[in-house]
Amino acid sequence: MIVAEQKPLKEIIAMTSPFKKLLIVGCNECVTVCHAGGRKEVEQLAAALAMAAQKDGRPLEIKEVTLERCCDPEYIEQVRPFIDQYEAVLSCACSVGTQYFADTYPTKWALPALNTSFMGGSLAQGIWAERCAGCGNCILHETGGICPIARCSKRMLNGPCGGSTGGHCEVNPDIPCGWQLIWDRLVALGRTPDYAKIMAAKDWNTSRDGGPRKIVREDLTI
């Protein structure tokens, strides 16, 4: 899923303070699961912003709504009947959702309440970690199922570097060395000879480096 966290409250207060009528929109998908922008967080944020305004003696009208999904046009449409009553949308969806509001309602401010951080999963209650960098050309079948791009701090395809120590990455002892993990998997799978193969320079064209990406499934388009 997409993992995000709420921006510092002060930053949100600063970006929303010019507005008197605010539509706060949450999303029922990833950001609900990672406790960053679901119904509950929307409610908390609305209460906090209301108090901030109350304290400063500035009028603020807030409407809270949480959509099923914010990365599909039909759900974004659901706010159309009342969006004109608000000056800005504060999006608690991931930054994809925020941009959907910007694209759909050209005259409304779309403000991000979250810092959208990575694609990952939860390790334990309250802890999430990155797993994929969306390079657009997956090589997990060659690396024992561990991604060297997302999990090696230098995204080396032929690691480990000389800084790998005791299973930790040189960048920070809290980061497991991605290449140690790959090696451990190759050992467990009985595939250590695979390590000898040099992985050629990657074609980053399928990654961000090729410009904003798009997938078209002709079989599904109407």
């Binding site: 032929n158 480990p160 570097c161 000389g162 800084g163 790998s164 120590t165 005791g166 299973g167 060395c177 140690q180 090696w183 390590y195 000898a196 040099i198």
Partner: peptide, 20 residues
């Protein structure tokens, strides 16, 4: 080449990759 980094058993294999 760093003969002292971990995992040790990879240090020679990685050198072989550089040679190749």
């Amino acid at each position: 080449a760093n003969p002292f980094a971990d995992p040790f058993e990879l240090r020679v294999m990685r050198l072989a990759k550089k040679i190749a």
